[in-house]
């Protein structure tokens, strides 16, 4: 049997709904990247489902011409899990934000990752609550002055990648709203992953937290402040590609190339390294003075998926016992006849 897939274009994934994000919001760039990538995946359009929680990012499904479900605050991973378990044939993507996924929905996020359910998770991180108009979020830097913290926040932020890796995520990546080609490439990698694919997308909220990522995105500083990691390549960064990362005991160290230090001394990135501790070390470079922020795929390994295991148990039970016989089930155990 051969079925030809319609040739899709970006337009096929756009809806007629008026987009209600603020002008200049980073979400537009993410929407555009996803709408560009979906047609290229070779999947029938009706198989895509976008599930979201609450927040600016969670309006995402309304603008995607696929099946879409805008659920309630924090619960998108759980709704998506129920859908994927019963319908493993579907391509389920979760759109969420730093508050939605890491605060109110933190529990669902870690358990989705732990179970390695085959979902693609786009975590839009703008380090602020946008839809509720400007409170600090669980990724806001300590001391953040926001509506609810006029004296500055006093709690330490989560690093989303560290958190995902702590739950032993099988696919962990990071990209940036304005780095379109990098973002699209990362989305494609996520699409190809079996199991939970977790992508943190650094996104600018130009209303409540403008410039939160500008030290990573501005042309003059970005090459020194970020490192684009690639599997099998040495960890090199800097405007002149003259800096690298190497191991220093149990820690990482930034070194200048030259003076006897060559790429051979540097860490060769291995996204398939089974121990999550390696990728965790990379994730900890964020915010460490002198270290770049890693972008790209930190980790991509194979591991058992919950929906596969669950459906396999059903298949094996039917194979072994035959399709359940309802009459037999109702009459199971001790019965007696009253005449």
């Amino acid at each position: 049997m051969t079925t030809t897939l319609p040739v899709y274009t970006k337009k096929d994934f756009q809806t007629d709904q008026e987009v209600r994000w603020c002008p200049g919001c980073g979400d537009y760039a993410i929407l555009s990247a996803v709408q560009s990538v979906f047609p290229e995946l070779g999947i029938p359009k009706e198989k895509f489902v976008v599930v979201s929680g609450i927040g600016c990012s969670s309006r995402f499904p309304y603008y995607m011409n696929t099946y879409g479900f805008h659920t309630i605050h924090g619960r998108a991973p759980a709704v998506a899990t129920g859908l994927k378990l019963t319908r493993p044939d579907l391509e389920v993507w979760v759109a969420t934000g730093d508050g939605d996924a890491l605060s109110i929905g933190g529990n669902h996020t870690i358990h989705m990752i732990r179970r390695n359910v085959g979902l693609k998770v786009l975590l839009f991180n703008n380090k602020i609550y946008g839809l509720t108009k400007g409170q600090y979020s669980p990724t806001s830097e300590m001391g953040k002055k926001a509506k609810s913290t006029p004296y500055g926040s006093v709690d330490r932020p989560f690093n989303p990648l560290s958190l995902a890796l702590g739950a032993e995520a099988t696919f962990v990546a990071r990209s940036v709203d304005v780095f379109q080609s990098h973002l699209k490439a990362t989305l494609k990698r996520a699409a190809a992953h079996q199991g939970t694919a977790f992508i943190e997308i650094l996104q600018n909220c130009n209303i409540f937290n403008d410039g939160a990522w500008e030290n990573l995105t501005e042309r003059d500083v970005r090459d020194d402040n970020t490192i684009a990691i690639e599997h099998g390549q040495p960890l090199v960064f800097g405007k002149n590609k003259d800096k690298g990362i190497r191991m220093d005991g149990l820690d990482l160290e930034v070194v200048a190339l030259g003076n006897g230090i060559t790429e051979k001394d540097l860490i060769i990135h291995d996204e398939r390294h089974l121990n999550p501790a390696y990728a965790f070390l990379l994730s900890r470079m964020d915010g460490t003075p002198g270290f770049p922020t890693p972008l790209g795929v930190l980790r991509a390994i194979d591991a058992p998926r919950y929906e596969a295991g669950m459906n396999e148990q059903v298949r094996l039970a039917i194979q072994k016992k035959g399709q359940g016989d309802l009459t037999k089930l109702l009459r199971a155990g001790d019965t007696w006849e009253v005449r």
Partner: peptide, 14 residues
């Protein structure tokens, strides 16, 4: 239900 060609639509709590 999702997977049905041509019936793509969005639902939610709003």
């Amino acid at each position: 239900v999702p997977g049905t060609p041509g019936l793509e639509h969005r639902i939610g709590g709003l």
